[in-house]
């Protein structure tokens, strides 16, 4: 048994080591908040996801695309879980280009559930020229595309400050405490009561940041809830099976004079 524990811990230590070696690098203390989706059985907060969607459409969507989301995702399990009618209503607010029709022409129609989120710009170049040369990144997997993840984006949204003395910023460049390099081309977005939440939650910048980052975390990892649920079961299953096999092994090896 001693050996087993030794073995298990060496694998475990190796994994810890390589995890750390990997993420080693400069670290700034990011702002923290209590994400409901962390932890072994963590789930998204539906209310927060729905509010986050509202913040996204009303604040972010004019510049940032979310090209991997479809309107149907809004009513899927594990997401904001709008009802299908609500999702259809949301979709029909957007115009998409379809076609060609039988006359060979493209036409616009209201979006359907199967359509992808409508993008604010036709292409990257248009996005750049409309935003002073900086491309507003697509937000669908952004949480996974930044080290620090949800905490990092939450911190950047709330990290606008006056630049330290002596730092000269160009026009259209803003100082952000948490942004990589401290310079960001997106101006501060979240001000008190910028949106009006239907459920009466006070729209403080912290609340809006938390909601929209929750929404982005879901968008980056839409199956997170299923993953946590299946993972929890899989681990319990493996532990029970390991114990059973351990006793089977003891039984079998008891036939020879040797230690397992």
């Amino acid at each position: 048994m001693k050996n087993v524990i030794k073995l298990f811990f060496s694998i475990f230590l190796c994994s810890i080591f390589l995890t750390n070696a990997h993420s080693a690098g400069e670290k700034i203390d990011l702002l923290k908040t209590d994400w409901s989706f962390k932890g072994y059985l963590g789930k998204f907060d539906r209310g927060s996801l729905q509010r986050g969607y509202q913040v996204y459409t009303e604040v972010c969507a004019s510049c940032h695309s979310m090209k991997y989301l479809s309107y149907r995702n809004l009513s899927e399990k594990g997401g904001p879980e709008f009802t299908e009618e609500q999702a259809k209503a949301i979709a029909s607010n957007f115009e998409v280009t379809d076609g060609p029709n039988s006359d060979g022409e493209m036409f616009t129609r209201p979006a359907k559930l199967s359509d992808k989120f409508v993008m604010p710009y036709a292409n990257v170049e248009e996005a750049k020229i409309s935003n002073g040369g900086a491309y507003p990144p697509d937000m669908s997997v952004l949480v996974k595309a930044r080290s620090g993840g949800a905490d990092y984006i939450y911190s950047v949204l709330l990290g606008y400050e006056d630049p330290p003395e002596g730092m000269i910023l160009d026009d259209g460049v803003y100082y952000n405490k948490y942004m990589y390099g401290n310079k960001i081309k997106m101006p501060k977005q979240l001000y008190e009561d910028l949106v009006t939440y239907n459920d009466g939650t006070p729209a403080t910048p912290e609340q809006m940041a938390k909601d929209v980052v929750t929404f982005m975390a879901w968008s980056a990892e839409p199956h997170l809830e299923a993953r946590h649920k299946i993972g929890f079961r899989a681990l319990i299953y493996l532990i029970i099976l390991t114990i059973l096999v351990y006793f089977s092994m003891k039984k079998i090896w008891s036939r020879v004079e040797s230690e397992v």
Partner: peptide, 19 residues
């Protein structure tokens, strides 16, 4: 008891393979 352990291991293993 031995049979029980073996049977249980096999049965649980089969469930896992199915999953």
């Amino acid at each position: 008891r031995r049979d029980f352990i073996f049977t249980a291991s096999y049965a649980l293993g089969a469930v896992g393979v199915g999953a």
